[in-house]
Amino acid sequence: MTTTAIKTFYPRRGRVSARHEDAAARLRPRYGLPPGPVTSERPLVLEIGSGMGDATAAMAAADPGRDYLAVEVHFAGVANLLSLVEEHELDNVRVYEGDAVVLLTERIAPGSLDAVHIYFPDPWPKPRHHKRRIIRPELVALIRSRLAAGGVLHCATDWAEYAEVMLEVLSADPGLENTCEGFAARPEYRVLTKFEQRGVEAGREIFDLVFRAVPTAGS
């Protein structure tokens, strides 16, 4: 079974506003990811599951020395982020609508990423759906292989059970080392989103995991 055989997301489009349709049509040629291998003149951060894009836009604006590639499968989020990139005149963001696993496998070279951010991925809480989680050994190995030495894989979740699984899976990868003892405090660069704030107000604990890519035997 290949890493692309089981989808980590459920595709849906739903109702889209005219503003989003217009933003996508106008701005994809300018801010969308061009065909071919992914390249960047600056250190590159891959955002897997950028949602509506507010956090990605804010982090990119505060971090002009790096490029951000935001990956999202839902059209409304892609269109909203394109609008934010235009509104804030960001020159360090590109947006890709599609499967991050396919992108990693086919278009991102090994050792080419400075960081990968995976914030609040679908926890797929039902046991029969756990196989769809993005933090599972074979996908973690793929993600880690695309990180440069010293590159950071930063995950966050508000599902305690998934957090424990994440910690176990990431700790077991021979090419990753935990930068903390267990879970990390939320780094200042990770923007507090409305989604996260609602979770905090509802009493849910937020878990951050910050791991670094390290050389492995034979590498």
Rank of each mutant, 00 (worst) to 15 (best):
D158P: 00
V78A: 02
R190M: 04
R186Y: 08
Q197D: 14
S219K: 01
R132Q: 10
A58Q: 06
A76V: 13
R136K: 14
A217L: 12
G65W: 08
P215S: 14
L147H: 08
A172D: 08
H88Y: 10
D54P: 04
Y31W: 14
G14V: 12
G53F: 00
P127N: 13
Q197E: 15
R13Y: 07
G36M: 09
P11T: 14
K194D: 15
A18I: 12
R107C: 00
R66D: 02
L44V: 07
V152Y: 10
S50P: 00
T4S: 10
K131A: 12
F207Q: 08
R19T: 15
T179N: 03
E138I: 06
G151P: 01
E181W: 02
R198P: 02
M166Y: 06
V191C: 03
S40I: 08
A25S: 12
F75C: 03
K7L: 14
L69Q: 03
G98S: 05
L192Q: 14
P34Y: 05
L27Y: 12
R30A: 09
L113R: 08
L104M: 13
V38P: 05
G77D: 03
H88K: 13
I135R: 01
M1R: 13
R146P: 00
Y162P: 00
K131G: 06
S112N: 08
E181Y: 06
G111F: 05
Q197R: 15
E177P: 00
R136M: 07
I143Y: 08
L46P: 02
H129P: 01
P123K: 12
H117Y: 15
I48K: 00
G65T: 05
R144I: 10
I134R: 02
G98I: 09
R128N: 07
L104P: 06
A58N: 02
M59Y: 04
P137D: 14
E86G: 00
I6C: 01
P123Y: 14
V38K: 00
R133G: 09
P11Y: 13
L27V: 12
H74R: 13
G182F: 09
G182D: 11
D208I: 04
G98C: 06
Y10E: 15
V73I: 14
V101Q: 06
E168S: 09
I48C: 02
A70D: 01
R30Q: 11
R136W: 05
E72R: 05
E201C: 01
E181R: 10
Y162C: 01
P34Q: 06
V200Y: 09
G175E: 10
D54N: 01
F75A: 04
R198N: 14
A149G: 00
P125V: 15
L46N: 04
R128S: 11
P123H: 14
E196Q: 07
T216F: 06
I143W: 08
V102Q: 13
V78I: 14
V85P: 01
E161A: 09
E47L: 02
S145N: 13
V101T: 15
M59R: 05
A217S: 13
R15T: 15
A25V: 12
G182Y: 08
A202F: 07
F207Y: 15
F75K: 09
P137N: 13
V101I: 15
P125Q: 13
E181D: 14
Y96T: 10
R26Y: 08
L170E: 11
P29V: 15
D54W: 03
G150I: 11
V140N: 08
G203C: 04
L139F: 11
A202L: 11
I143V: 15
G65Q: 11
